[in-house]
Amino acid sequence: MQIPYAVHPHPVTGIPNGKLGIWLFLASEVMLFGALFSALILLRVGADHWPHGVEEGLSIPLATLNTLVLITSSVTMVMSWASLKLNQYGRFQMYFTITILLAFVFLVIKYIEYSDKFHHEHFPRTNNFYATYFTMTGLHGLHVIGGIVVNSYLLLTGRRQWNRDPEHFTNRIECAGLYWHFVDLVWIFLFPVLYLL
């Protein structure tokens, strides 16, 4: 059975159902990360001393590099959507592949950071700072992995979907892009809160 209003806007909402769905999902994600930021504020204002990220051995250069990697992946993601709008499937493949590769680069840098922390015996149980650091960056990392899975599926099956219904596939890429930009957005706030303050 065909999902209704997957391509054309629903007469009531004015947008396709998939887009409404992804925005509702992102709203729930805001509340998920909001709860963690709330917990961080609660712990921080209640602590006699809250360590600076550098004091605890976090690497600002690596985190800055990761921020630039995610920002770049966001722009390649939106360029891949624009390429489909311009009927340039080859360019879409290029930009979308770069987006996925950059997501892997982000995870590799995160792995280096985590390895260093474990090597110095810093674990979530070490203190409240590391508990929040690992919880928030770990959850964010899981979202990056989720993005890689979805984007890889769309890349691998893209040609078939594009040939069958280009507009529907373009909408799917837009939804995947909204999720990916949200992942970038979360990191934009995690970076200063955990590393710089």
């Binding site: 949200f182 809160v193 303050l197």
Partner: peptide, 17 residues
């Protein structure tokens, strides 16, 4: 830091999203 992060977040939300 939070002002700059908010500006960055707004740019992503307004233009990329």
């Amino acid at each position: 830091a939070l002002t700059v992060a908010t500006i960055k977040g707004s740019l992503v939300a307004c233009y990329f999203m």
